[in-house]
Design a protein around this nucleic acid. Structure first.
Lengths: 124, 124
DNA sequence: ACTTGACCTCGAGTCAACTCGAGATTGTAC
DNA sequence: GTACAATCTCGAGTTGACTCGAGGTCAAGT
């Protein structure tokens, strides 16, 4: 199964413009038909879904690009790619911890507001 | 205790430029001395620390600005501010959940790499 | 009196990540 | 055979959040 850019765009919910931009940034390299049009494969599909994951976890495009370049080379870069993921995992883990802390803090603040509001209502 | 912009900048580890930018964006409004210089108070200190928390949890400046404006009005906006925080709490909570899912997925991928690498070494 | 350092304003520059639009081409549908 | 929809490239514009620099003020130290 292959897809035109329009189909692919709808499928993964990224704009056509964004897809072309990702290609320019060397994140993805779809095959081309004889007439020059992009032709995305199932492989491209799983790959872009992974790119999304990386993006959603805050990895900048330049970093994803590094990964993509290694991936394009293939087997000999397995270790390198794993390394990169392990590092990213570390960062992500820290980030989650930080966010959990912030969430708690936010909860405290909300509780404080609740108290003030309740007390104010008791006054009337 | 009050601080000049330089002192304050060092204290909270934000550049002087950034502090002035935050002021321009109406996040913070330090007192001014007769000569026009900024004069930050303890109150400003706790406030900017809270701003940081909001920023670190991904709240955009425009949103923080709303909060700041309500805060400046004072008491009658308590409910509004609480609302805003509750909403943000919700978003943050979802985000953390998403990130945890991504983390798991990343772990799987790393495991997969490990396996491939081990198998490859067994071959030799 | 004069240099120095911290401060001021205001306008412009930067960076990442898109986002848009003009102008050309191409494949299908009437 | 022509309209139209989808595609192409390339260059420019946008947004958010800073970041920088020029040119000026002002108080303290020598």
């Amino acid at each position: 199964m292959t897809y035109t850019i329009g189909e692919f765009s709808r499928l993964i919910n990224l704009s056509i413009h964004t897809l072309r931009y990702y290609e320019l940034e060397e994140l993805i390299a779809p095959r081309r038909l004889e007439n020059g049009r992009r032709c995305y494969s199932e492989n491209d599909l799983t790959w872009i879904q992974f790119i999304r994951r990386l993006k959603d976890t805050g990895m900048p495009i330049k970093e994803i690009q590094k990964y993509a370049k290694m991936r394009a080379i293939g087997d000999p870069t397995l270790e390198g790619r794993m390394e990169l993921l392990i590092q990213h995992r570390q960062v992500l883990h820290q980030e989650i911890k930080q966010l959990e802390e912030h969430l708690e803090n936010l909860d405290d603040k909300i509780d404080y507001y609740k108290n003030v509001i309740v007390k104010r209502q008791e006054q009337n």
